[in-house]
Write a protein that binds this DNA or RNA. Structure first.
Lengths: 297, 297
DNA sequence: GTTTGGTATAACTTCCGTTTATAACACTTT
DNA sequence: AAAGTGTTATAAACGGAAGTTATACCAAAC
C-alpha cells in the first residue's frame, strides 16, 4: 500500500512543474522530493512525469490520469482539518444538553435563551430525562453536558461541577388547611396531613426522606406522583400537603393558589450540579456555553 | 501538517471500533495504532474517540465530524490506484498516434482497424503531421508513438524501431510518354522530362536527390507540390513524370491511369520507422498496439 | 477473585526519509 | 567551442519517527 505522504509530494510537484520549486514549497530538500517521486512511480509501476530540462511535467499516460483524484482527496483532508480547527475557534455545530424538564424550565431556560441570542449559529439539542438516565446519555456520548439534582454520585469518568442553583424545598398547601399558615409549624405536626411527593426513586423524594429520618420524624406519603405540575394541581385542590422547591412553585405562591408552610426546622437546601464527561472533546461552542456557568474546561 | 498515514489508521479504527482489531487489519501492532491515534488527536487538538471498555467509538464532537470526509478522501486514493493498475493490466484509455497522412493511409490504416476491433474500449487519436513535427509532438507528450519516413535521425531521448513497411519509390507517368514504357530506361534519360516531386524539405524528395546525386545524375524538379494525391493527378494528366512509392500509386497503376517507368538503376527502397519516447510510461493499451508491430517495450 | 477483552505507556530497535554533496544533463550565453 | 545556468539523479551518512515487545492498567463478566 502506497504511503499517502508521497501523494502530497506528487501533487506539489505536479502543480509546481519542478522538483526544485516543489521542494521549496514543501520545506524539504530537492533530492528528498526526487526520491519520493521515484518511490511513488516504482510502487505504482508507472512513470508519472516526463522529465525535461525545464522541469517535470505530468505524463499523459501516467500522472495526468490520477492528478484530479489526488487533488480532490487532498482537498478533502484539508476540509476535514479546517472543520476541526473551526470547531475549536468558532461557535458552530451542535451542543446537546441533558437535564430533567423541571431543571430546563427553572434553572436552564434563561441561560439557554441568552446563549442562543449570543451564538445563533449553534444548534441546541435538549434531551429531557431523569437524572440517572441523563448521566447514562452523557457516558454514551448522546449528550455533551448534563444537569442533575444533587446529591448525586457520578461515575469516575464523569466530572461533577458544583452548585449552580439553590433549590429550597418547602412544604406547600392549598387553602384547605388555613391552620398551618401564618406561623411556624413543627414538622412532626404534619404527620396528620396527607403528604404528596414525587415518585420515591427521585432525588427529591429520597432527599426528603433522608432529611426527615435524620431529624427523627417519619412522614409517609399518601400519594406519589410523576411530575411537579401534577403535584401543584393536587395540592391546590386540597388533596394534601406537598414538598417542592420554592422556585418551582413561585408563580402559584404569588397568585395565592398555593401557600408555603413555614416549618421548624426548615427543609434542607438542595442544588443542581453540572456534569461533564472527563475525556470527551469540548468544542468551542460548548466551551462558550460552559463559561456562562463560570466553568472552565 | 498532519501525516496523512495517520488518517488511514483513524479510518480503520473508526470502522473496526477497536484498536486491537484495527491493528490486525492493518498488520501492525496494537500499540502502534494506539500511538497513531494519540498523535493524530494531539496534532488536531481534539479528542476523536470515546474510549470505552468495549473499544473505541467516534466522538460526536470530534471524529464523527470528519469521518465522512476522510472516508471519501481515502476512497479517492483507492480509485486513483486502481485506475493506474487498470491502465497496466487492461486495454483502456487513449493511444495517440502521430504520422503523416500517407503513412496513416498506406501503412497504418489496416493495423488501426484491426486494433480497434480487438480493443474497442481504447480510444485512438490520430495526429497527422509531417515527420519532424510528429517527433516534436512525441517529445512534448502530445502523442504516444510516431511513425516516420526513414531515414530520419532522432533525438537521443527517443527510440527508433526498425523498418516496418518497405516503400519502393518508382517513376510514374501518364499515357503522354509511351516511349518510356515497356522497357528499362536509364535514369539519365529522364532529364528530358519535367519532373514532379514533393516539396523539397520532405524526406521523400531529400532521399530522391541524395540517391540521384550518389549515382551522378542530376534531375531538377519542374514542379514541387504538397501532396501525393496532387502529384498523381498531375502526372496522370501528362504534366510530367513523378516519383512516388509504388504502394501509394498501386490503385492507379492497376486502373491504368498511371504507369510505372522501370529504370536502371531502380530507385532505392525506403521504409517507415516507429519512434517511441525513451522514458515515457507505456499503458497496457499502447503495449498491445505496439505488439501488433512485434515491438516489445 | 480471577479471567477476559480492551487501551495506555515505556523502552528499545529498526528502518525509512532527509540532508549534504556531487554527478549528469540540456540548453544558453559568451 | 567553452563556460554558465537551471534542471534532475545518485550516493552515502545521519537522525528521528514509527513499529515492536513487554507490561501496566482498567472495567466488566464470570
Amino acid at each position: 500500500m502506497v504511503n499517502l505522504e508521497l501523494y502530497r509530494v506528487f501533487y506539489m510537484v505536479a502543480k509546481c512543474g519542478s522538483l526544485t520549486r516543489a521542494a521549496e514549497e514543501l520545506y524539504i530538500s530537492q533530492p528528498a522530493v526526487s526520491q519520493s517521486i521515484k518511490q511513488l512511480e516504482n510502487q505504482l509501476g508507472v512513470s508519472l512525469f516526463n522529465r525535461t530540462h525545464r522541469g517535470m511535467e505530468l505524463s499523459a499516460q501516467g500522472g495526468k490520469v490520477i492528478f484530479h483524484k489526488i487533488e480532490q482527496a487532498l482537498q478533502l483532508f484539508g476540509e476535514a482539518e479546517t472543520m476541526i480547527s473551526q470547531m475549536n475557534t468558532s461557535a458552530t455545530g451542535t451542543i446537546r444538553i441533558g437535564a430533567s424538564d423541571t431543571i430546563f424550565e427553572y434553572v436552564l431556560a434563561d441561560k439557554i435563551v441568552e446563549f442562543h441570542e449570543k451564538y445563533p449559529a449553534v444548534k441546541i439539542e435538549l434531551l429531557s430525562d431523569f437524572s440517572p438516565q441523563t448521566l447514562e446519555e452523557l457516558k454514551n456520548d448522546i449528550c455533551d453536558v448534563a444537569f442533575v439534582n444533587l446529591p448525586m454520585k457520578v461515575d469516575p469518568d464523569l466530572k461533577l461541577y458544583g452548585n449552580f442553583k439553590q433549590l429550597s424545598d418547602i412544604f406547600i398547601t392549598g387553602d384547605k388547611y388555613p391552620e398551618l399558615l401564618d406561623r411556624t409549624v413543627p414538622i412532626s405536626e404534619l404527620k396528620k396531613y396527607p403528604l404528596i411527593t414525587l415518585d420515591k426513586d427521585t432525588v427529591a423524594t429520597k432527599t426528603l426522606k433522608g432529611f426527615l429520618a435524620s431529624i427523627g420524624v417519619e412522614l409517609s406519603s399518601t400519594i406519589e406522583i410523576g411530575s411537579w405540575e401534577l403535584m401543584k394541581c393536587l395540592v391546590a385542590r386540597g388533596m394534601g400537603i406537598g414538598v417542592i422547591p420554592r422556585e418551582y412553585a413561585q408563580k402559584r405562591l404569588n397568585e395565592g393558589s398555593l401557600f408555603e408552610i413555614k416549618t421548624a426546622p426548615a427543609l434542607s437546601v438542595r442544588s443542581v450540579g453540572m456534569v461533564l464527561p472527563k475525556n470527551a472533546p469540548v468544542s468551542y461552542a460548548l466551551r462558550m456555553f460552559l463559561e456562562m456557568f463560570n466553568v472552565k474546561v
